[in-house]
Amino acid sequence: MLLGIPSRIVTGYLGGEYNNASSSQNTNSENTQQGGHLSIYQYDAHAWSEIWLEDIGRQRVDPTAAVDPQRVESGWSTELLSQQSALSSDLFGLYKFRKTAWLNTIRLQFDALDYQWTRWVLGYSNEQQYDLLKRLFGGNIQWKATAIVVATLIAIMTIFTLFYRFDINAFKRKKLPLWLNLYQQALAQLAKKGTKKTTDMSPSDFAQVVAQQHPEIATQFREFSTTFEILMFKNLNSKQQVMYLTRLKQQFNRLKPN
């Protein structure tokens, strides 16, 4: 307004880079006809002036063409490019790779992948989701989607039910100490004969029950139970543990035929 002419500053972008590599990655025929995309970088930012002329309206006044013609003609400036190279560590976003054909091809491919990621992942809108479902399932998307959700929930519930009903004790037995495994085998054989150990019984208490119901193995089972208690509840060193475990095996082998 120093000269009495209404003016304003306008900011935007000037230039950009056309990338045709993304056209081969599009599966949609409409996007293929468009052929690639235009990449706009931060160093494409530009500002210019607009003035208001009576009976004409707003007119752009941009001295860039006089100061740096390359900026207008090709969309990028040698000076801006050198500044960008010095300040940026972006390997695949620098224009300096345009001079080497195979490096420039790789750079454009990476830029095309970034474009597809932005378009199909970051920018995956509700309309695109609806269009995808419509192509997959046709009409009546609402009830079909509801049926898929219900079927998925039923399948998940069925899997969890089968998992909890599956007997995993066989897997747990593999991790049990040998003395506990032998003792459980003895309990299982006695349970088949009608003598079951309850959870409130200690091994010594159960040995007394076995002595009453099966006096023929009373002494053998009492000795077996005593050795089991030592292995189960006492703090033994490695040598003692091996000694008592050997004894328990011998007692179990003598008890097993009975």
Score class of each variant (00 low, 15 high):
T219D: 13
Q142H: 03
D90I: 10
T246V: 01
T100L: 13
D44A: 07
Q250Y: 14
I5D: 04
M157Q: 01
S7A: 05
N181G: 04
P215V: 12
S204M: 08
E229H: 07
K197N: 01
S82V: 07
D62C: 12
G16W: 15
Y13V: 12
S202T: 12
R60Q: 12
S88H: 04
D62E: 07
L14K: 12
K249D: 11
F160M: 12
M1K: 09
A45I: 01
L38V: 15
A65W: 11
K192P: 01
F252L: 11
I9H: 03
D200T: 07
D68Y: 07
A101M: 14
L180K: 10
I217H: 11
T246F: 01
W102K: 05
E50H: 06
D90S: 09
L162T: 01
R173F: 02
K249G: 08
F163L: 08
A47K: 06
K134P: 02
A45K: 07
E54N: 10
F252H: 15
Q184A: 09
L231Q: 13
W117H: 13
I230E: 08
I230P: 09
N181F: 03
D114I: 05
R247L: 15
P257V: 08
L133K: 02
Y130R: 13
L182S: 00
R135C: 05
I230N: 11
E50N: 11
N20F: 04
Y41D: 14
D55E: 06
K144D: 06
P203C: 06
L113S: 02
E127H: 08
E30F: 09
W76L: 05
E73F: 07
W120E: 10
K144P: 03
D68L: 13
Q83R: 14
K96H: 13
Y41K: 15
N20S: 14
H37N: 10
Q25H: 05
K172A: 08
